[in-house]
């Protein structure tokens, strides 16, 4: 069953000097519970596409359907968005950071604390609720950001290079954590990344975009034997290298 559908998405940016077409006729659909990645050269509009799916701004043309319904105010909350950096609010405690989404949508404050603690436990950070973001390391902060995104119980998670600002070790650990958490809750996820390895290790399908204007170039199905593994183990699997090569060649051919 197609959960997220993009139909004929076109998008252009306008400035006083020029109009620039960034997305040209994007059509794709993603199943419920599926993990997919968007990769492509810079300027291929993958982050723009993610922002459009998130409802941050409307596409110039085209339709986005979630569960058969077009996105509007009332079902925006189905979408969770994670950015390159954690963007935790430095003036709020970790607990208040995690519950900010709940606070905005629902005034019942009593259950928030419980939700926050359960989620922090889930991302492996029990007992940090009273701390402030500056007291945590980069990896821990990004995990808190994950908890904050999950707190509102979104159906779809949009991940905009959320591991790119982390050191390699934290990145690998967080990849495992994200995949495991999303599988547990059966969430649909779209990851934007420039790291082919990360895309292969984490997703079930990889969408390759070409630039100027951004077009969907090719879709790669990741072999079943890799899908079952955690991202860390997938990177060690014998068939990983082959998949990497084929995507790499295709990316190179785009210039």
């Amino acid at each position: 069953m197609d959960f997220l559908q993009l139909e004929n998405i076109h998008h252009s940016y306008f400035s006083s000097k020029e109009a620039k077409e960034v997305l040209y006729d994007i059509n794709l659909s993603i199943r419920e519970g599926e993990f997919v990645s968007f990769i492509g050269p810079s300027g291929c509009g993958k982050t723009t596409l993610l922002s459009i799916i998130a409802g941050l701004f409307p596409a110039t043309e085209g339709k986005i359907l979630i569960d058969g319904e077009e996105i509007a105010e009332h079902n925006k909350s189905l979408i969770g968005y994670m950015l390159q950096q954690d963007y935790l609010f430095p003036w709020k405690t970790i607990e208040d950071n995690v519950t900010i989404g709940l606070k905005l949508t629902d005034r019942q404050n009593k259950t928030h604390k419980v939700t926050a603690n359960a989620l922090l436990q889930e991302v492996g950070l029990p007992n940090v609720g009273r701390y402030y973001p500056r007291e945590l390391s980069g990896g821990m902060r990004q995990r808190v950001a994950l908890a904050r995104t999950l707190a509102v119980n979104p159906k779809i998670l949009l991940l905009d290079e959320p591991f790119s600002a982390l050191d390699y070790q934290s990145k690998l650990k967080l990849e495992d954590l994200v995949v495991e958490t999303l599988k547990t809750y059966h969430k649909t996820a779209v990851l934007v990344t420039h790291d082919i390895g990360e895309a292969i290790a984490m997703s079930e399908r990889v969408f390759l975009f070409s630039a100027n204007p951004g077009k969907l170039h090719k879709v790669f199905d990741i072999p079943k034997e890799l899908q079952g593994l955690s991202p860390f183990d997938a990177r060690q699997h014998p068939s990983y290298g082959g998949v990497f090569q084929s995507i790499w060649k295709e990316l190179e051919s785009l210039g």
């Binding site: 105010e73 925006k76 950015l83 963007y87 905005l104």
Partner: peptide, 14 residues
């Protein structure tokens, strides 16, 4: 103020 903070809020429908 860093617009990404507002972006986070927008994604929560603020």
């Amino acid at each position: 103020v860093d617009p990404n903070y507002s972006k986070v809020m927008q994604t929560f429908g603020a």
